[in-house]
Design a protein around this nucleic acid. Structure first.
Lengths: 200, 200
DNA sequence: TCGCACATGTAACGCGTTACATGATTAC
DNA sequence: GTAATCATGTAACGCGTTACATGTGCGA
């Protein structure tokens, strides 16, 4: 038993989605930990996030299990040494096996909805403010998605990845648009004056 | 310093959303821990979940901080004793203060999208299976939402809560519908044969 | 008889974030 | 000067789930 780690190595790997996220990134090309963190933030951040506190240990774990190898790059351009990771054949096999497995349905958590569910306890206007705030946020992310779409369509034209990247991006766009429609509907609903008797 | 707990009691409460979830439930009527767990599962489960392992400690915390009081109900109908909790004036005040604060944007995690983002590594048909599976799931939840909508519209007719409950439910419906549209679009996208050159 | 609903709780553990430690270079 | 970016890592801690412990009554 090494360190605080208990159980089989496989047991850890089966559920550790950070491992597969970095393997997925390494399947495209070689990266350093820092670059992976950055890439996650600029590509899949709207549906998946990983912090550096997870990425570095995950990379170490990958090397330990033979899923990736690490090559130390000497300082270039007066920068620090970099550790460049590459996926191994075993890593690729494990990634593919994981990709084929059905995704576990996520437990969604939406604090905005939680507050609105209890909305009868506060003023109508306070509830409307929550929705208006969200509306503004969505408009920003939609503008963002639009930019990303244009950028990757040009930059990765001809790449077999593009189709999949646009597909996931479309999910973000469709969801955001649906949320906007809901915001308007919910605001209309709140504006309506309703006279109700007290019940449960 | 008592036990393993550090910092102000308020510090804990500020972020502990389980506390506010149970307070929100208790604002409607008195409940036992078991009943709260059950109610969460049958009402807000599609956007918020709490396990019993969190609800019972949260209730104890509420009592400790004077946000709720507990009355032990002697065994009725040959059942076990129940602990019925009621919200206090302080609890109501804290709940309202929390409800008025802006909701923190959630970090979404969607394993399905993560797998599809890396979809170029596996067969087209495997990717399609993921989407078809999700399609089936959504159809089930939509049917579920429809039932809930009918039920609560009758059961809570005239309640000031109904408006807010229908509003959050509509969010679930709109999102699910948007996801369905995306599924069809994504399947069409995958069916198309595309001949691409290898690039990044 | 077996499993489920009722009913309350605790313990273990994994996931994930935040903050910290360290330090160079670049841009304003 | 001072903030941001590059770059790697560790430690602390909170959130949340799962499993366990314990026990009754009811229906198939």
């Amino acid at each position: 038993m090494i360190g605080s780690y208990k159980g089989h190595p496989e047991a850890l790997m089966k559920n550790n989605r950070t491992i597969f996220t970095v393997l997925g990134m390494l399947a495209v090309k070689n990266f350093s930990g820092y670059e992976i963190a950055k890439r996650i933030k600029t590509t899949i951040n709207y549906f998946w996030s990983e912090s550096e506190g997870q990425i570095y240990p995950a990379l170490a774990q990958c090397v330990k299990e033979g899923l990736a190898v690490c090559k130390v790059q000497p300082p270039k351009d007066n920068h620090r040494t970099k550790k460049i990771y590459s996926i191994t054949a075993k890593g690729k096999r494990e990634l593919i096996a994981w990709l084929k497995q059905a995704a576990k349905p996520e437990l969604v958590r939406n604090e905005l909805l939680l507050k609105l569910f209890f909305g009868a306890n506060i003023d109508k206007n306070d509830n409307m403010q929550h929705i208006i705030r969200r509306q503004r946020e969505i408009k920003l992310v939609l503008a963002d998605y639009d930019q990303i779409k244009k950028n990757i369509s040009v930059k990765y034209k001809g790449s077999k990845n593009l189709k999949y990247w646009l597909m996931t991006l479309n999910y973000g766009i469709k969801s955001a648009e649906a949320e906007l429609v809901w915001c308007n509907q919910a605001l209309k609903m709140l504006k309506r004056k309703t006279y109700t008797k007290k019940k449960e």
